[in-house]
Each structure stands twice: as C-alpha cells, then as structure tokens.
C-alpha cells in the first residue's frame, strides 16, 4: 500500500515536473494559441474536411447521408456549366493579374516617389476598402448603367462609343474585374508601400550619386527589394480571385448568358438553389485541390528560383 502511494507521488511529481518544463519552454505561449486554433478548426479546417466528405455523399439536410462513391464528382465534371464556370474563373484570374496585379505596384511606387502629399494619396487609395460590399456593388451598378452611368459619360466626353458593360457577355467579366481592382488595389498598395519604406535610403542616394535615373532606381533597387512581397501577393491574389463569388452573385447573377458564372457561384447554386450539397462539396473540393496544387507548384518554383539567385 505504502509502495503504491509512493509510486503515485513520484508519478505526480514527474508529471508536474514535465508540466513545469513544458511551460518554461514556451508551452504557455502555445496555450495562447489555443483559442485561435479552435476557431480555425471549427470554421476553416473542419468545413474543408467536411466538404470533402460531402463530395462522396448524397446529403439532404436533416436526413442521414448516404455514400454514393464518386457519383457527385462524375456528375459535376460532366456538367457543361462547371466547365464553363472554370473557364470564366480562369479568365477572371487572368484579367485580374494583367490589370489588378500591376496597378498596386505602380501606384505604390508612384506615391513613394512623391515629394509631397503622400499621406493624402495613401488615404485616397485606401478609401474604396472602407465602403461596405453591397454599397460598393450598388454604386458600381449605377456607374455601369448604359444610359446614365458615369463610365459611359466619361467615354462620351472623349467622343468614344458607349459600352454595355455588364449587359454584354463580352464585357461583363472585364467590368467585374475593373470594379474588383478599383475596390481592392488600395489595400495591396499599402503592403507594397510598407515594403518600399523598408528599403534603406542610402541605396537610392548611392544610386543617384552614380547617376541612376528614376527608371534605373526602380528597376535595380525597388523591384528586387519588393520581390518577396510581390511573390506572396501574387499567390494571395490568385487564391482570392479564383474564389470570386460576391461580385457575380450581387451584380449579374452569373449572366448575361452565363458570361460571369464562376466556380464558387456554381458551388453556391448547387448548395442553396438546388439543395445538392454533395455536388457542392465535390466542386468545392476540386477547387481546393486545384488551388492547393497551384500554390504548391508556385511556392516550389519560387524557392528554386530564389536559391538559384543566391
């Protein structure tokens, strides 16, 4: 009996020792992470895993799910609208990269080159970010209006023909990109400006003494210094634009003639218009897989390119 108690005491002492040691080696810090981990697990990781599970089930909310194997994936991949939605989404990503990716870089460099008024322009470019989403979309719906919209008024001022914007399949996706770029470039530009302000002033001074012009300073100092920020922003932008949903949902409902039907909008339609949650899970997971592979390849390529440079 006494031996037993002694063992228990040692065990208790041992565990409290280990506990104290864990606390000493940063365990307390890990404890602080626990709430965030719980929130992420509940609202991010579990839904991702559950989305995959849903892809293999016929799921009617409230009723027990049934396993259907790959039927949902087959059905989704044979849906002509899914193919179209992928094409539209990739086109949107491409347009956002061509226009939306460069604008913040150029604007950030432009503002940082200013001798005066930097604060004003920083605030000005960030303003669109504080407009609530729905207000933004309604505002742009009016700006795109073919009869009284601001954009056609501007075109008219320059004697250019009016455009149909959201009403024509050829220009609808471009119009959404235009709005998304306007709404989001300010925040991205701030990231670049933060990166720019970290570049030592001496480098520019030395370059100026050596006779470097503005373009040469940008090319040989600014852009290389911004490269890590640009790399991560490129990836984030691709991830964000592939998931485009709100703009077509509110402004075009995927039209006209499915010209703005995106993958995430189709996921929404599967789930909340047709109640086909299995198909929604399958398509959502395929998108996740696509983004995962894309991110993996991109990060790997970036690392190789970086190590080659070093």
């Amino acid at each position: 009996m006494g031996g037993f108690s002694q063992t228990k005491v040692h065990a208790a002492l041992g565990s409290s020792y280990q506990w104290a040691r864990l606390m000493k080696n940063g365990g307390l810090g890990l404890l602080f992470l626990l709430p965030a981990l719980c929130v992420f697990a509940m609202f991010q990781w579990c839904p991702i895993v559950y989305g995959l599970v849903l892809g293999f089930q016929k799921m009617i909310p409230g009723l027990p799910p049934t396993w259907v194997g790959l039927a949902n994936f087959k059905s989704v991949l044979s849906d002509s609208l899914v193919i179209l939605s992928f094409k539209n989404t990739l086109l949107f990503v491409g347009l956002c990269l061509v226009f939306g990716y460069l604008v913040p870089v150029v604007v950030a460099i432009g503002i940082m080159e200013l001798r005066r008024g930097q604060g004003f322009f920083r605030l000005a470019i960030y303003m669109p970010n504080i407009i609530p989403g729905i207000a933004l979309y309604v505002m742009w719906l009016w700006m795109f209006d073919p009869a009284v919209g601001l954009l056609n008024q501007i075109l008219g001022f320059f004697h250019l023909p009016p455009q149909e914007w959201l009403l024509a399949p050829k220009t609808a996706l471009f119009s959404l990109m235009l709005m998304a770029t306007w709404a989001g470039f300010g925040a991205t530009a701030l990231f670049y400006m933060a990166g720019l302000s970290a570049i030592p002033e001496e480098l520019y001074e030395a370059a100026e003494i050596d006779g470097a012009g503005v373009w040469q300073r940008i090319r040989h100092i600014t852009l290389p210094a911004l490269r890590p920020t640009m790399t991560i922003m490129l990836l984030l932008q691709i991830l964000a634009t592939v998931q485009v949903f709100q703009e077509p949902f509110v402004m075009t409902a995927g039209g006209p003639n499915n010209a703005t039907l995106t993958v995430m909008y189709q996921v929404y339609r599967y789930a909340f218009v047709y109640f086909e949650f299995g198909k929604a899970g399958a398509l959502g997971f395929l998108t996740f897989l696509f983004l995962f592979i894309l991110s993996f390849l991109y990060m790997r390529y970036s690392r190789i390119a970086h190590s080659e440079e070093v």
């Binding site: 609208l81 009403l167 399949p169 039209g255 006209p256 003639n257 339609r269 218009v273 047709y274």
Partner: peptide, 21 residues
C-alpha cells in the same frame, strides 16, 4: 421537373442572350 434549374441555368441564359445580342 427541376423548375429552378430550368429557369436559372437554361432559360435565363437564353433570355439574356436574346437581349444582349
């Protein structure tokens, strides 16, 4: 049969194509 799918995925695009082209 599948009225919502017919409206949203099939006939609405036709209507929009007629009005945009």
């Amino acid at each position: 049969i599948e009225a919502q799918k017919l409206y949203g995925e099939v006939l609405a695009p036709v209507y929009q194509a007629l009005l945009s082209d």
